[in-house]
């Protein structure tokens, strides 16, 4: 498939632009990261660079260390060896729900937004713009535990973007998305790149690899 074929693929424009006034310019450099759990080596000397404005898909078989690599990039897990250099703020969207089921979506937005100094109103307004791009209208009172899996994942993505990260780390963030939201998501990845962010997506959907600039296959540990 040629590059232009990828362009011609119809990608719906986001319903509403989640553009942030002065988005973070990002970049990520991973150098010689090695990680073992006990005797099992999951990552061996992994290096890659995601400059500002580019996206990288991390692929590989189950258990090959994709999520571990993302956690190392986010600073949640220490590697045995190696460094991660980050330009801008980090945003991390985990595979498992990093949410509180007894709070509402707005509560989450207020809590995350406060980290950037946003008021509750400003955080909800900004979160609503990101949510709208995923074709989601944020419910006011519904607790997160009552939301569907796909909707919770949209909240996960929305809270990640509230901190205006320069580097966006997403671990299979589209699980449970309906088809329209799934396409919207990849449109958002394009938009985040256009804004100068560096985006890393862990994915197992190999037919979507044409949607990113680079691919890191951890089964082979080299960047295509």
């Amino acid at each position: 498939m040629a590059a232009d074929d990828a362009v011609s693929r119809s990608v719906p424009a986001p319903a509403s632009s989640p553009t942030i006034a002065s988005p973070q310019v990002g970049g990520l450099e991973v150098r010689s990261v090695t990680k073992s759990y006990g005797r099992r080596r999951v990552l061996t000397d992994v290096s890659f660079h995601v400059p500002a404005g580019r996206s990288l898909a991390v692929v590989g078989a189950n258990g090959c260390g994709k999520s571990t690599l993302l956690k190392i990039c986010a600073g949640l897990v220490s590697p045995d060896r190696g460094t991660v250099r980050v330009h801008g703020r980090l945003g991390y969207c985990p595979q498992e729900m990093g949410l509180d089921g007894f709070l509402t979506s707005e509560d989450h937005l207020a809590w995350f937004g406060r980290g950037r100094g946003l008021s509750r109103r400003a955080a909800v307004a900004e979160g609503s713009r990101v949510a709208a791009a995923l074709d989601w209208s944020i419910p006011r009172r519904q607790q997160v535990r009552h939301l569907s899996g796909g909707t919770r994942q949209k909240l996960n993505v929305t809270t990640t973007m509230l901190s205006d990260p320069g580097v966006v780390l997403l671990d299979e963030p589209y699980q449970g998305f309906d088809h329209g939201s799934y396409l919207d998501f990849w449109g958002l990845v394009d938009q985040w790149c256009d804004e100068g962010r560096a985006v890393v997506v862990v994915t197992h959907l190999l037919h979507e690899l044409n949607r990113v600039h680079d691919v890191l296959d951890l089964s082979r540990t080299e960047v295509d």
Binding site: M1, A2, A3, D4, D5, A6, V7, Q24, V25, G26, G27, V33, P51, A52, G53, R54, A57, I72, C73, G75, L76, V77, S78, P79, G82, T83, V84, R85, V86, H87, G88, L90, G166, D190, C193, D194, G196, L209, N210, V212, H213, D214, V215, D224
Partner: peptide
């Protein structure tokens, strides 16, 4: 964690994404 080093974003020039122009399909790279 000490392995994560935050550096000034301004030292890294923004690469124009050039969506659809510079992005190759991964298999063609």
């Amino acid at each position: 964690r000490r392995h994560v080093v935050y550096v000034d974003a301004t030292v890294e020039p923004v690469v124009a994404a050039g969506r659809g122009v510079t992005r190759p399909v991964s298999g063609d790279r």
